[in-house]
C-alpha cells in the first residue's frame, strides 16, 4: 500500500492532511509504530501478537477520532493517551498483571538512576542492575509506574504526562516524587534481602 511520505510536515499538519486524504494516515503509523510498540511493551503488553492487536486498535481509534484531536495539545500526547488507555483496557480484558520489561538497555538504566528529580529522596545504589530495577518497578503501584515510564523511559515533559494521563500537572510531580521514593524503598529492601 503506497502512502504519502511527508517528513517535513508536523504531526498536527499530517492530521489535517489525513482528514482530507486518508493515505496520509500511513505517515502517522510510520512515525509512531516503533515508539508505541515500545511504550505498550513497557506498560505490560509483552507478546508480539498481542502488541500487534493492541497497536491495530490504537491506530484505528486514532483514525476514527482524528476530528476529536485537540489542537491545543501535542499530537504525541494525544496518541500516547490513546495508547495508554488501550494498553490498560487490554490487560484488564485479559485479567493479567503487567509484566513489562521496562528498561531496555544499560544506557536507559544509567539515565534513570542519574535523573536529578527527587534525588535527595531516592538514593539508589549504583551497582543495581537493570533486572533489579525492572523487578522493583513492577512491584510499585501502577499509578507511580506509569508516570515513571513516561518521564524516564519515554522522556516526556510534565505537561505532556499531564495530557497523556489526564491528571493535573501538580499531580504529575507528586506521583513522580512518591514513585521514586517507593522505588527506592523497593530497591533498598531487595538489597537487604540479598
Amino acid at each position: 500500500m503506497a502512502t504519502a511520505s511527508s517528513p517535513q510536515l508536523t504531526d498536527e499538519e499530517i492530521v489535517v492532511k489525513t482528514l482530507q486524504d486518508k493515505q496520509f494516515f500511513g505517515e502517522i503509523v510510520d512515525r509512531y509504530e516503533a515508539k508505541l510498540t515500545r511504550y505498550i511493551a513497557r506498560l505490560g503488553v509483552r507478546n508480539t501478537e498481542d502488541q500487534l492487536d493492541v497497536l491495530q486498535e490504537i491506530f484505528l481509534k486514532v483514525y476514527k477520532n482524528l476530528n476529536g484531536f485537540d489542537r491545543s495539545l501535542q499530537f504525541s500526547s494525544w496518541i500516547y493517551r490513546i495508547s495508554h488507555n488501550e494498553a490498560i483496557s487490554w490487560y484488564r480484558k485479559k485479567n493479567v498483571r503487567p509484566e513489562g520489561h521496562l528498561i531496555a538497555d544499560s544506557e536507559e538504566l544509567l539515565g534513570f538512576l542519574s535523573a536529578k528529580e527527587d534525588a535527595q529522596d531516592a538514593q539508589f545504589d549504583k551497582t543495581i542492575n537493570a533486572e533489579q530495577v525492572n523487578a522493583a518497578l513492577l512491584k510499585i503501584e501502577s499509578k507511580y509506574r506509569e508516570v515513571i515510564v513516561l518521564r524516564f523511559f519515554e522522556h516526556k515533559e510534565y505537561e505532556e504526562i499531564s495530557d497523556i494521563l489526564k491528571i493535573p500537572i501538580g499531580s504529575v510531580g507528586t506521583l513522580l516524587h512518591r514513585g521514586k521514593k517507593q522505588l527506592a524503598n523497593e530497591l533498598n529492601s531487595d538489597a537487604i534481602r540479598m
Binding site: 500500500m1 494516515f25 503509523v29 509504530e33 500487534l52 491495530q56 491506530f59 484505528l60 483514525y63
Partner: peptide
C-alpha cells in the same frame, strides 16, 4: 508493512 497494510485493509 504488515501493520500499515492491515490498518488500511480494515479501514
Amino acid at each position: 508493512t504488515k501493520l500499515k497494510d492491515t490498518l488500511f485493509y480494515r479501514i
